[in-house]
Simulated assay, not measured.
Amino acid sequence: MEYSLAIENAPETVSGGTSILLVHPSTAETDRVDTDFLKTDTDHLLVVSTRTTAREVKQKLEHYEVDEQRATILDTLSVERGYSRRKSDSVRYVSSPDDLEGIVDQVRRFLTETDGKRRVSVDSITEMIYYADEEQAREAIQEIQSLLADHDAVGLFHLAAEVHEESVVDDFRSLFDGIVELDEDGTLTATF
């Protein structure tokens, strides 16, 4: 299955199973890149949020006019922070951002329960490393990538470069089919 990509300077399409790393400064505005990826040529989308709550993700999707009827949000923060949570078909929860097994299970569930063109956004690997560690985060990312390949889906994974050692960033780069770099000024470069 081919997926259209609405990412500046990237290929027009990618095959199902493709995983893309979005490398960005921690202060950069990634929402535009993320939502352009999610709303293009898709039947179902999953936002795995280790950085913001489901409410904040919903606001982002609404602001950038992403079809919320197609969206499932995995909130990893609200339980740990004691926020109120309302389970629904479109919002799921795991206990915390370091519950990597729970995150992988929820990605598996989403991909098993949906069909057609599916996109997954993981925002962010940086938080997974912060809450767990590099090795566990790497294993979880690789498991998610395998699920994407098995289900002919595509994924976009965020990584804030300057908060990690260069060797860590390089290690994660090596796991991906495509690298999209977002500069402070909003310039995008892509290598596939």
Results as ranks from 00 to 15, higher is better:
D115Y: 12
R51M: 11
Q106W: 05
S124N: 15
L77D: 10
R119K: 13
L100P: 03
V57F: 02
T40E: 01
L74K: 01
R118N: 00
V66I: 11
Y93N: 05
Y130G: 10
L46K: 05
R81S: 09
V122Q: 04
R118Q: 02
Y93S: 09
D75R: 11
S121Y: 10
H44M: 05
T53Q: 06
D115L: 04
G116T: 08
S121L: 15
S84V: 03
E68C: 11
T114Q: 13
A132K: 07
V66E: 06
D67Q: 07
T50S: 13
T52D: 13
E127H: 04
G82L: 13
L45M: 09
R92E: 09
D75E: 08
T72C: 07
D43S: 01
T40R: 01
V91W: 14
Q69A: 14
H44F: 12
T72S: 04
I103S: 08
S95V: 09
K58E: 15
R109F: 04
S84G: 10
F110G: 00
I129M: 12
D105P: 04
L100T: 07
H63W: 03
T42N: 00
I129S: 04
A71P: 03
I103D: 03
R85V: 09
L77K: 15
E65I: 06
A54H: 12
L61N: 01
K60C: 02
L74A: 01
L45R: 05
I73C: 07
T52M: 14
E80V: 13
E62R: 11
L45N: 03
T53R: 11
V94H: 13
D115I: 06
M128Y: 05
E68G: 07
T42P: 00
R85Q: 12
E127P: 06
T40F: 00
R108G: 02
S90E: 15
E56L: 12
R55H: 11
A54I: 03
D75C: 08
D123H: 10
G82T: 14
R119W: 03
T76I: 06
R81G: 11
E68L: 11
E65N: 14
V122E: 03
T52W: 14
D67F: 04
R108N: 08
V57I: 11
T114R: 12
S95A: 14
T52E: 14
Y131F: 14
Y130F: 15
V94W: 07
R85T: 04
A54W: 15
D115G: 14
V57K: 01
L74W: 05
E113H: 07
S88Y: 09
R55P: 01
